[in-house]
Amino acid sequence: MNTLEARQVEKAFGRTHALRGLSAKIEPGEIVAITGPSGSGKSTLLHCLSGIMRPETGEVHYAGERIDTLDEAARTKLRREHFGIVFQFGRLVPELTAVENVALPLLFDGHGREEATTVARAWLEEAGAADVADARPAELSGGQLQRVAVARALITSPKVIFADEPTGALDSVAGERVLSLLLGAARVNSATVVIVTHDNRVAAYADREIVLRDGVTAGEVMA
């Protein structure tokens, strides 16, 4: 099974300890919110779980395999094949149009340009962003950027979707639309969702909350 687990993970940036022996387990298909005040280690945990970053000590496991010991290339491959990631400000490639951004993961996977573009347009349609398919990121509103970023994260039907403050830059109603889109698609694919958020109203969409304080879990709140 595609269980995701951090075991006694520690990570420091200089003298600042972001994670101090943190353990957390996320079951397949779960929607989990990681919450906590600024500097509590939320984003660092997401980066360690998704293989973007390697912890100094401790272990990270995915689907029965230890992933923190994999080299950069193997972790990139894992992310491309199994994970979808949405960041706060979309992090789209500014030189590419929305549809080109969404098609990127498929192009990396070796699909042809025409096929990738067709699938990307369908995802933009699904995300309610078909009308901005040929616009560049600088021409998009915050809500549109996030819809495009969600389409890009979902295009490979990932097993796990990581979202770091996906609605942080949006107003309530626009944020709700982005979340509905993300969680709706995840439920259809039985994907696991890990959302880092400081917004309690976003956390209320999750089945479970992992509360972080000073780099360790302060508690877990089950649905």
Partner: peptide
């Protein structure tokens, strides 16, 4: 505070 947070969030989940 942690127990109350859990109760509040549970209610927020129902409303959501």
């Amino acid at each position: 505070l942690l127990r109350q947070r859990s109760a509040h969030l549970e209610r927020m989940r129902e409303l959501t």
